[in-house]
């Protein structure tokens, strides 16, 4: 398969039987990724999908690209090594809330701060699915699960806040059932240089069903979500009758019925160099705010692999390609001659 051949969704499907539970949100994500990859103009063999452990991490087996199903939490580390060794590859990571934010939290934040040129798709179902239903680092406080029969006493992570706090250069959120929005978000991630972090709300219909129903059901969707679109005011609601404005150092919901209009709303800009507003917006959600989806942050910063490769290139230019004979013969040398004399 060469770069000039037109690829289709089918080219990215494998012959492996997909083994997620019927009705799992992962199917929708798989479908969106398989639909977007052919659009990117990248030969199939240059895609690598890397994953950790969990339901989401079975993803590589179902993508007809190169794939590496690694170990729990370590996908960003494996992907970092791969991307540095092979900057020519398009490296995508499939991970989950437990994989990325719990056991793999360290690797996640360091990949983000380094700005490694990989795409991280974090499927967030707010539960451990593959181990059959324990609370996860994104489960809401008080969550009753098999491992928290009296309610979880953990405070959850907000994944977007973690990413922004770690210095991520691209941070976005979408939802499994919003296919058009999800594809649009994936395209934006693909176009970004550096680490693209995409949180995808994903329904686990077995262990945490309807976790996002309050955002996705038709009747409530418009009131519960605010779409972040750069250049546009943050307006939401069924009749697009409400908005978000910045008052002092706080965000607040304003109702147009109270005399406000779109001009009073915060105009969204994902390229603000200061991450403070993106961080505040990332914190929005029930009960006082709609939940933001779309691109929260998109800024340019040099990538890790460019820096690493650049150093090798500059040093090689400066010194010439390393000479092994000279290297071994460096330092103080002496010669023992056949007659035993030394010089």
């Amino acid at each position: 398969m060469s770069g000039s051949t037109t690829l289709s969704k089918k080219d990215f499907q494998t012959d492996q039987e997909v083994r997620w539970c019927p009705g799992c949100g992962d199917y929708a994500i798989l479908s969106a990724v398989q639909a977007v990859f052919p659009e990117l103009g990248v030969p199939r063999e240059r895609f690598v999908v890397v994953s950790g452990i969990g339901c989401s991490s079975r993803f590589p087996y179902y993508m007809n690209t190169f794939g590496f199903h690694t170990i729990h939490g370590r996908a960003p580390a494996v992907a970092t090594g791969l991307k540095v060794a092979r900057p020519d590859l398009e490296v995508w990571i499939a991970t989950g809330d437990g994989d990325a934010l719990s056991i793999g939290g360290n690797h996640l934040i360091h990949a983000l701060r380094r700005n490694v040129g990989v795409k991280i798709l974090m499927f967030n179902n707010r539960i451990y699915g593959l181990t059959k239903g324990q609370y996860s680092p994104t489960s809401e406080a008080g969550k009753r699960t098999k491992s928290s029969p009296f309610g979880s006493v953990d405070h959850p992570f907000n994944a977007l806040s973690v990413a922004i706090g770690a210095g991520a250069t691209f941070v976005a959120r979408s939802i499994d059932v919003l296919q058009a929005h999800l594809k649009e978000t994936l395209r934006a991630a693909a176009a970004h240089r550096g680490t693209a972090f995409v949180e995808i709300y994903q329904n686990c219909n077995i262990f945490n069903d309807k976790a996002f129903a309050h955002l996705t059901e038709k009747e409530v969707r418009d009131d519960a979500l605010v779409h972040l679109e750069t250049g546009k005011p943050m307006v939401f609601g069924k009749g697009r009758d409400r908005g978000i404005r910045l008052k002092g150092t706080e965000l607040e919901v304003i109702r147009f019925a109270d005399g406000f209009g779109p001009d009073d709303c915060l105009v969204w800009d994902d390229r603000r160099s200061n991450p403070a507003i993106a961080f505040m917006v990332a914190q929005m959600g029930r009960p006082d705010f709609p939940t933001p989806i779309g691109v929260l942050r998109r800024v340019d910063k040099s990538t890790f692999e460019t820096g690493m490769v650049g150093q090798i290139e500059r040093e090689t230019e400066k010194r010439g390609v390393g000479n092994l004979q000279q290297l071994i013969h460096s330092g103080d040398l002496w010669t023992v001659h056949e007659d035993g004399t030394i010089s």
């Binding site: 398969m1 060469s2 494998t14 030969p43 199939r44 063999e45 240059r46 690598v48 452990i53 590589p60 087996y61 993508m63 007809n64 690209t65 190169f66 794939g67 590496f68 199903h69 690694t70 170990i71 791969l82 092979r86 020519d88 590859l89």
Partner: peptide, 13 residues
């Protein structure tokens, strides 16, 4: 190696 056309494959633990 990734990047080699026709050798797309998956490995894992």
């Amino acid at each position: 190696l990734p990047g080699t056309a026709g050798l797309e494959h998956r490995i894992g633990g």
